[in-house]
Design a protein around this nucleic acid. Structure first.
Length: 234
RNA sequence: UGGCGUUA
């Protein structure tokens, strides 16, 4: 089982979802019992909801129905396929909810365009004394960017500074996107300039934000700086 | 050997 897990995990980590899932089926065919390491990867490898439900039904047999890692993978997968009710029911049944599980709910709602629900879950999470991490923060900021919600965006920005997440590139990138979509171009660019290690997301986002203003010269200038910085355009 | 995040 250890060997199967290692290879399945390798496949899904490299986006070879079908290969990963096929290997999971292969191990089942050969009577190798899967464990709590197998399922999160196998779930990620599922390409349709029926396979996910099949695995979900199997969990009881292995006593893994309350495993947080398996549960998070399921919640994530259900929301990816738009099965909000299944995801919520699972979330509700898990007795212990860690930050990753909350994140899976928030980002799942975001993924299907339910920005209001994403924000609701975020608030509930804080009520439950679970501290949002930088994954949570990037997800919520992205939801606020999509809904151009500057008020909540400002509030989250304050939280980001309080917790020191402003040193995390992905968080800064999400802030740039949020301010950009809220038409606060100067603030977006200010945050961009503060990033010490600008990545491909930083450049793409700031270029997109700047271009919205119709300032083509500025956009070209950002692009030139991007090339100079050694980040390859994609 | 395991689950969640930012642009397009």
């Amino acid at each position: 089982v250890y060997a199967y897990n290692a290879i399945i995990s390798g496949f899904v980590a490299n986006n070879l979802y079908n290969e990963g899932f096929k290997l999971y089926l292969h191990m089942r065919c050969h009577g190798v019992p899967p464990d709590k390491f197998t399922f999160p990867c196998a779930i990620k490898g599922c390409s349709d909801v029926l396979e996910v439900k099949k695995i979900n039904g199997l969990l009881f047999k292995f006593g893994l129905e309350l495993d947080l890692f398996v549960g998070s993978a399921l919640v994530n997968c259900y929301l990816k396929f738009g099965c909000v009710d299944d995801a919520y029911q699972l979330f509700d049944e898990l007795p212990v909810r860690d930050v990753v599980l909350w994140n899976a709910m928030i980002n799942g709602y975001m993924h299907i365009g339910e920005f209001g629900m994403a924000l609701e879950v975020f608030k509930r999470m804080s009520d439950c004394m679970v501290v949002p991490n930088n994954f949570t923060t990037t997800g919520v900021l992205s939801a606020l960017a999509m809904s151009a919600d500057l008020d909540n965006g400002h509030a989250i920005h304050g939280f980001v500074i309080k917790r020191g997440y402003d040193s995390v590139v992905a968080v800064s990138n999400a802030l740039i996107d949020m301010y950009g979509n809220c038409k606060c171009i100067d603030e977006a660019v200010r945050i961009f300039e503060l990033i010490t290690e600008k990545d491909i997301f930083s450049w793409n986002t700031v270029i997109g934000v700047n271009e919205q203003t119709g300032d083509h010269q500025g956009t070209i200038e950002f692009f030139r700086r991007m090339l100079d910085s050694g980040v390859r355009p994609d």
